[in-house]
Simulated scan of single mutants.
Amino acid sequence: MAMMQRRTNVRLPPEVNRILYIRNLPYKITAEEMYDIFGKYGAIRQIRVGNTPETRGTAFVVYEDIFDAKNACDHLSGFNVCNRYLVVLYYQSNKAFKRIDIDKKKEEIDKMKTKYGINAEEKK
């Protein structure tokens, strides 16, 4: 018989984070509107809405509780705001973004090697 686990003992996937990274937001969305949408899922510590040309349409939402963040992520991915569907991701530390860059660079190098017939494992 499985006993009811207390919430504190629930194992969460490793990528689950109190910080959500939101993409595909309407450019004109306000912090107040963000609080209205995301506040339904729990107490929010901070919301940062992108305001530069590079960060427009994105935001970070920091919840007090990791379970509230998970709940929001599960329910708000694909949520329609002004005919835009939100992309809600768990924030990954810079390491994750750097890793993607390294993989991309490696892929580019491999393509160049193939294009120019360079084979690293070539026997002399």
Rank of each mutant, 00 (worst) to 15 (best):
Q46Y: 06
Q46N: 09
Q46T: 04
Q46I: 03
I47A: 10
R48I: 05
V49M: 00
V49Q: 04
G50T: 03
G50F: 01
G50R: 02
N51M: 00
N51A: 02
T52Q: 00
T52D: 01
P53G: 00
E54M: 01
E54L: 07
T55A: 01
T55F: 04
R56L: 08
R56Y: 04
R56W: 00
R56T: 02
T58R: 04
T58Y: 00
A59L: 01
A59I: 06
F60V: 02
F60E: 03
V61R: 02
V61P: 09
V61K: 00
V61M: 09
V62T: 13
Y63E: 03
E64P: 03
E64F: 07
D65G: 03
I66T: 05
F67N: 05
F67R: 08
D68Q: 14
D68R: 06
A69M: 03
K70W: 05
K70P: 07
N71A: 08
N71V: 12
N71K: 12
A72V: 13
C73R: 08
C73S: 11
D74G: 04
H75M: 11
L76E: 00
L76D: 04
L76T: 01
L76C: 04
S77A: 11
F79Q: 03
N80F: 06
N80L: 12
N80K: 14
N80A: 10
N80E: 14
V81G: 04
V81L: 05
V81S: 06
V81C: 05
V81D: 00
V81A: 06
C82L: 08
C82Q: 11
C82A: 10
N83E: 06
N83H: 09
R84Q: 13
R84I: 02
Y85C: 01
L86Y: 08
L86R: 03
V87Y: 06
V87K: 13
V87W: 01
V88D: 02
V88C: 10
L89G: 01
Y90C: 04
Y91M: 03
Y91R: 10
Q92I: 06
S93L: 09
S93R: 13
N94G: 08
N94P: 07
A96G: 13
A96Y: 11
F97K: 06
F97T: 11
K98F: 08
R99Q: 13
I100W: 09
I100E: 12
I100H: 10
I100R: 12
I100P: 02
I100C: 10
K105L: 14
K106F: 15
E107S: 14
E107V: 11
E107G: 05
E108Q: 15
E108Y: 13
E108V: 15
I109F: 12
I109D: 14
K111W: 12
M112R: 15
T114E: 12
K115E: 12
K115S: 09
Y116S: 04
Y116F: 13
G117S: 11
I118L: 05
I118G: 02
I118E: 07
N119A: 07
N119D: 13
N119V: 11
A120Y: 14
